[in-house]
Design a protein around this nucleic acid. Structure first.
Lengths: 240, 240
DNA sequence: TTTGTTATATTTGTAGGACAAAAGGGATTT
DNA sequence: AAATCCCTTTTGTCCTACAAATATAACAAA
């Protein structure tokens, strides 16, 4: 079975059993709600110790693929998509290049959801967004508190109506908050330069594009709005 | 958010220890490369059995947050972002509404990466895309083989230059392949309707927009190109 | 017969011991 | 000083044991 019988054991038994359990689910076409064999049966099926089976199932349980209750056995679940992603998205664990890619992802998402935003937006949504903007308090040049900054964008995602994208955005927030906290001194000069060249885009500008029902303009503006983060990360990366 | 609010929310010791180990990493500001206490020390630190500590660490090892080698102990790693995501992205485990949200994500991404696509694209990239299109063989109305369909889009992502987004797309592929396989009969009528209304967009149309350096047109066209999938899922959802 | 209660057996969660394999560190030899 | 060998530590795996939960069977009551 394991043709890599060398000093470098890259796959542990747990890794293998984890894969085998997933394989079992696929082969037997189990869908959410169906029940799996219990631990003992897997132990016999794979000829491994109970610990190995338990570790493998523990992983799948964490991801939300499995759920087990004492005596009732183990059932397959529809997993929350971002369970594992959440735990990995710790700014402390990620390098700047990785954070830069995440920022690129965010820009792409916010530009892209304009497609949904403009078909879904209602008068009430626009009022909400106006309210949010009116409560914002600028600190320096286009520099809002984390909460204010988040609130507006989150509302945009909500209007767009894709829960997965919204969850995704919320998970990525800590990373951006971290970046903003740690490198705030970088943003001010970038913002200043943008302001001088008349390229600075505020939330009001974004809302105006929504009111005008000008999707292309909105996409252009959201890109520019997020540009300071992007530019900072780009510079940081090059310097390093 | 992702917690299914069942009557009995059971947090096992393993869940708690998993959280505590992450907490330990944060509190001690451990970064990739730093080493953790060994199993025994965690056992004493948290007053639990070794199995519990091992299960918790096994999870973190799977996500790529930890790496352990015999005797050298355990070190913190920069985790691959999509390790956990990959395992839950099994079309067999996901419901149609979830797949629909993923499709929305894809549309947003492909519209959004136009921002990067148009700044990065070179003459050679355009030649490549032309080559890819020339090798494609249509089956029915704008219906390509999975491989042909994938190849073009993958190349677009590559040109855009964000590895995370590319990985993300590649992970989602099986889901879309599954949808296409299972519901192929739905696509033909949708495509036919689009063709009659002159709204059908082929890869050639997309490439033309790139050649013309018309970003807004490209974004409009990529949305329409992906629309059959979207529409199918929308209909399917409503019917169900 | 049906319903309600109790007892039994099964299954997961947790603890802890044992041993093999790997690898760092130190002692020994050349 | 360099190479070699031995000891010890640490992870990976197996095993036994027991507590808690609960499905199932057995039994009692209506």
């Amino acid at each position: 079975m394991s043709n890599m019988e060398s000093k470098f054991i890259v796959t542990t038994l747990t890794d293998q059993v984890e894969a085998k359990i997933i394989e079992y689910i696929k082969e037997n076409k189990l869908v959410p709600g169906d029940s799996l064999p219990n631990e003992k049966e897997f132990v016999e099926m794979f000829s491994v110790g109970r610990n190995v089976v338990r570790e493998a199932m523990s992983r799948l349980r964490m991801l939300g693929i499995l759920e087990s209750r004492t005596k009732r056995g183990i059932i397959v679940k529809e997993p929350p998509l971002l369970n594992g992603f959440r735990k990995v998205l710790d700014p402390q664990l990620l390098s700047v290049p990785t954070i830069k890619e995440l920022m690129g992802m965010r820009i792409a998402m916010e530009v892209g959801i304009a497609e949904f935003l403009f078909t879904n937006v209602t008068e009430k949504d626009i009022e909400d967004l106006e309210q949010i903007i009116s409560r914002q308090q600028a600190i320096g040049i286009n520099n809002l508190s984390i909460e204010d900054e988040m609130q507006f964008h989150k509302r945009i995602y909500e209007v767009a109506g894709n829960k997965f994208i919204l969850n995704f955005y919320e998970l990525m927030q800590p990373v951006f908050v971290f970046a903003k906290h740690n490198y705030e001194s970088y943003f001010e000069p970038i913002n200043k330069k943008l302001q001088e060249s008349d390229e600075l885009v505020t939330h009001s500008d974004l809302l105006q594009a929504i009111k005008d029902n000008d999707k292309n303009l909105y996409q252009e503006k959201i890109r520019k709005h997020l540009r300071p983060y992007w530019e900072f990360l780009y510079n940081f990366n090059n310097k390093k």
